[in-house]
Design a protein around this nucleic acid. Structure first.
Lengths: 339, 339
DNA sequence: ATAGTCAGTCGAAGCGCTTCGACAGCTTTT
DNA sequence: AAAAGCTGTCGAAGCGCTTCGACTGACTAT
């Protein structure tokens, strides 16, 4: 294992000079710099992470807390995680992967031990246990998702309220008068994960404004659960011609069931999904959808943290404006039908 | 930030004693231990990770290299990552998330800097660039996946050869005489990711042994690509009554297309999938499948690494035996059909 | 009774790096 | 020509922990 001291000796300078070449915190003459860089290359030197962390009290690591459960939004999580990791690398940071399992203890451990310089939390609940801890430390953090109370916190998320509104608008504009919402699993709502409620809120208030009917039904993923849910919806509101789906694992079952019942998409019914782009494109009908900007959120989170660690940056809540992409699953409401 | 020294003072012992209480590397009297543990709790002490790493040259971190691309097996990756993270925690390790982006450089960086004590590599190619580096270091590592040459390496993977064989057997036993294989995207084969080829190998050799016809077609995910692929298959072998699918994003499209063409599953055609359990269960037809044991692989990888780090454990290749679960997508081949 | 053993504790020497103050040799200002 | 300011470099003091050797006192074997 090559050390700084060995590089210094090889280059004929002092250890501190090598350190300054590496960090750029003091000016170094061009010739010295080159000599040192040459030695570093020749010896294959890599600074020791532990020593560096100890001396500088900076680990150059960002902790990322992902939810433990894999029942929801897995591709989104993965995409965010990868975006976080790659963005972090471009800023010289590595990413520590924490699962929600440890809960608040993980926050304590990481802050207390100096393992990471900053944290990104995913799957934030409305009244998350980890929040008081974050507020009580000076370690920067970004939440992906929105809790109930955001003072003193930095958050990024898709504007789910606007997303809901946008979906209803789109369907209403096409003439649909009765809309059903296939939501996440009941557990998601019980857990008070903000996004589901915010979407619903946006859906409802715009539906009311536009005077269209809205029926919301949570739904476990999978074909069987979807079959039951759909049957209930059509029983209760036979005239339903527009669907909004916010549940990846309900998308294909819904399409399959509609097809099976002889309801053509988009001729008879229209479907709008809130899902990652990939899901929308790869579905058996190319779905009109509002994409979940996973990459963008991951990138933003890291960049904000880096800014904070550099002494720039402030607490703020950023809601990303939703964009609805029209594909093949929505069309004008069937005419001559009494809703 | 509380330090060891402060704890020592608070407990009225020397710093080294506190250290030994923490590590258990020397015997400590019960009374002293209790006093120290009390002080640790009262002061809310957390050992500083950097200092610890520097002094012990152990970071207690395991690096996990995940593939950058999200075009394949995302849920499997995620499940593995989470299994790795949680298992690592139970052994006192944290997980550093590296993306494939940096390639071999990441390996150099991590080994060189002592950032991690060990590595887990996913998405291993047959002739992976990172392998020479792993062989050239004394840092333990486990590959999830199988390269062409495994000497000096530790690997875990599903036994894909046996998996292929098992799928063919199951279909043959049900009387299917012409089987089509929907494979991964062509890019996966070109990249020489071992698992795809090994599966194919298993499929082919067992098909030959059992005297059934086998047609293999790679397939991009999605509905459109699947439509083209299916049309070609049925054109070439109209009597095909059994399908083996090894491509998550082709599963639903295949089912949708079969349905649309009036081919009932499992009455007219049978489908066996190689996919995570969740996908098989949530599909619009509950799929007979060979599960990909993501959790098991992740757990094994970590446990093997921990064993190695403790001076136990050896290099070896572990192939997990496939298990085929019969669900609703396979049944006897339709009678009276000339294949 | 004396040597040997052992459990329990301490002190001190690092681990490899960052960073602060100091200083030598310049150039610029007055 | 002296004072002031740069620039580029060095030495040394830690950062908070682990770990080795040494020591003390009590206990066992002879």
């Amino acid at each position: 294992m090559v050390t700084l001291a060995e590089v210094a000796q090889h280059a004929g300078v002092s250890a501190s000079t090598v350190s300054y070449v590496l960090s750029g915190k003091r000016s170094i003459s061009a010739t010295t710099r080159q000599r040192v860089e040459q030695s570093i290359r020749e010896l294959g030197y890599h600074p020791n992470a532990g020593a560096r962390a100890l001396a500088s009290s900076r680990s150059n690591i960002i902790a990322l807390m992902v939810p433990l459960r894999t029942d929801m939004y897995v591709p989104v999580m993965m995409e965010i995680a990868i975006a976080v990791a790659t963005t972090a690398r471009t800023h010289g940071y590595d990413v520590l992967l924490l699962t929600g399992e440890e809960g608040p203890d993980a926050v304590r451990r990481v802050t207390g031990s100096g393992l990471a310089d900053a944290m990104i939390l995913m799957d934030v609940e409305l009244d998350d246990e980890r929040l008081p801890l974050l507020r009580g430390t000076d370690q920067p953090s970004v939440l992906i998702g929105l809790p109930a109370e955001t003072t003193g916190l930095t958050c990024v998320d898709l504007d789910f309220r606007a997303t809901g509104a946008l979906c209803v608008e789109h369907l209403a504009m096409l003439g649909h008068r009765d809309i059903a919402v296939i939501g996440e699993a009941p557990a998601v709502y019980e857990r008070h994960t903000g996004f589901a409620e915010r979407t619903l809120d946006g859906l409802r208030s715009r539906a009311q404004e536009l005077g269209v009917g809205l029926l919301h039904r949570p739904c476990e993923g999978g074909y069987d659960a979807m079959a039951v849910t759909l049957a209930r919806i059509l029983d209760e509101r036979p005239g339903t011609s527009g669907f909004v789906v916010q549940n990846e694992s309900a998308v294909e079952p819904l399409l399959a069931l509609l097809r099976q019942q002889g309801r053509a998409v988009p001729e008879d019914v229209s479907v709008v999904a809130v899902c990652p782009e990939q899901v929308a494109v790869q579905a058996s009908v190319r779905l009109t959808s509002v994409a979940i900007p996973a990459q963008e959120m991951g990138r933003y989170a890291v960049e904000h943290l880096v800014a904070k660690l550099d002494g720039r940056g402030t607490d703020e809540v950023v809601l990303i404006a939703p964009e609805l992409t029209v594909r093949a699953s929505t069309g004008p409401a069937p005419a001559g039908r009494i809703s």
